[in-house]
């Protein structure tokens, strides 16, 4: 069963001795449902990764970096998870995110989606969906609404969208949400 897009799974392991970009590795590419499950069943669950590691799933041709041509004007819908939720919700929410991407759940705004990242950190884990144009409000809001619903988040849960530019230059710990 072919997917609309070919996707690349990336892995990031924080090794302070090396340049940031060298810690980011392409694992493999896939463009069928069957290959997705073969990969997913083969790798460690996100909740089992050590602190400082990330998984990223991005469309082939887009790197999971702010600098990539298709990311630099974009931003991300950000889900922050308190530490105790790692072993309860993290894997379920990350898998649902992956299914939204490969299943093209954002309809006509799917082409605005670049990819998704899960950051495993000692304080707070984060899951985010990266979109290409932060100023494309219609697309950003549609993607956010569908995503929040798919994750089954309660209506009172607030999720924020941050431009990568803000995230990259944030002085305090929390970049402002648009």
């Amino acid at each position: 069963h072919h997917l609309q897009n070919r996707w690349v799974l990336w892995f990031f392991k924080n090794d302070r001795g090396r340049a940031w970009r060298d810690n980011l590795q392409q694992i493999t590419k896939f463009d069928t449902v069957e290959d997705f499950w073969a990969l997913y069943s083969h790798i460690k669950l996100a909740s089992k990764l050590s602190a400082g590691c990330d998984y990223a799933l991005f469309k082939d041709g887009i790197e999971p970096t702010w600098e990539d041509a298709r990311n630099k004007r974009g931003g991300r819908w950000l889900i922050s998870l308190a530490k105790e939720r790692r072993h309860i919700d993290l894997d379920r929410l990350w898998l649902e995110t992956l299914l939204c991407l490969i299943g093209e759940s954002f309809e006509e705004f799917g082409q605005e989606v670049c990819g998704a990242v899960v950051n495993i950190r000692s304080k707070k884990d984060k899951i985010s969906v990266w979109t290409q144009e932060a100023e494309n409000q219609k697309a950003v809001l549609h993607i956010g609404r569908v995503y929040k619903e798919r994750l089954g988040l309660s209506t009172k849960t607030i999720i924020g969208y941050q431009t990568h530019a803000d995230t990259a230059t944030k002085s305090n710990t929390v970049a402002k949400s648009k």
């Binding site: 499950w37 649902e96 093209e104 309809e107 006509e108």
Partner: peptide, 18 residues
């Protein structure tokens, strides 16, 4: 053009089929 969309239910069923 056409868009290839997979519902989550279908994707999860594919996971369990041999």
């Amino acid at each position: 053009g056409t868009r290839i969309i997979y519902e989550r239910k279908f994707l999860l069923e594919c996971k369990n089929s041999p």
